[in-house]
Amino acid sequence: MTELEDLEIQLLLEGVAQLYGYDFRNYALASLKRRIWNMVQSEGVKTVSGLQEKVLHDPLCLDRFLLAMTVNVTAMFRDPHFYQAFSAKVVPMLRTYPFIRIWHAGCSTGEEVYSMAILLHEAGLYDRCRIYATDMNAAVLSKAREGIYPLEKMQEYTGNYLKAGGTQAFSRYYTAAYERAIVRPWLREQITFSQHNLATDGSFNEFNVVLCRNVMIYFNKTLQEHVHRLLYASLTLFGVLGLGQAESLKFTPHEHDYAEVVQGQRLYRRMR
């Protein structure tokens, strides 16, 4: 809005990056600004500089900052059509592999990781899979690891599951207790949760599938390009990249190295 506001935001992000190593400097500015101002209000300070002082001096405030700056909106079988397309077009390719490595980058609280585990289980492939689920935020990652969700959400998730092509009773996959749904332990067995920051950490393996959905929309062009290079380097030849519903490879550095697997479903296959 004003030059002063932009300067304050720049200083805040610089401070957090230098002191704590969390780098938000290349996040998409418009939505980040809204989240910063929301936090200025919720912390009861008046200015972005006020927030900066609090975050830099109080590590507990940093935890709140990390949660406030990242978007952790997710659901089981979010965008059911994506899972349908994945079952129809990607699963047959995966059947040809003896062992399947999947990276779910930016897994948030884990709902979409367990959705993929369920899909692979129903395809009869789960025993051959290892899912690496990563997020930069330790707090959401520990929720993902627990796999405990509000019971009232299960109705919506069951609907999504059926639309996604689920063939079982969805209630097989969780135990209900104290208004909570707890994911069955065997669903967690092939999942490794760990902290990884797309802005600052490198590639750590080669994968047959990389899912990074609705994560890069929060990054600016520079960081998006960096992450696209990282994901490309982490995929095997003919590996599949899954993006969010409104994301595409257009104008990205590896646009021409992938082929669309299903038109309109944001699944891309690395061709070279």
Partner: peptide, 13 residues
């Protein structure tokens, strides 16, 4: 959302 020269999307609340 609108940024300088480009559109941007978010799934904030």
């Amino acid at each position: 959302l609108v940024e300088q020269g480009t559109y941007a999307l978010s799934t904030d609340e």
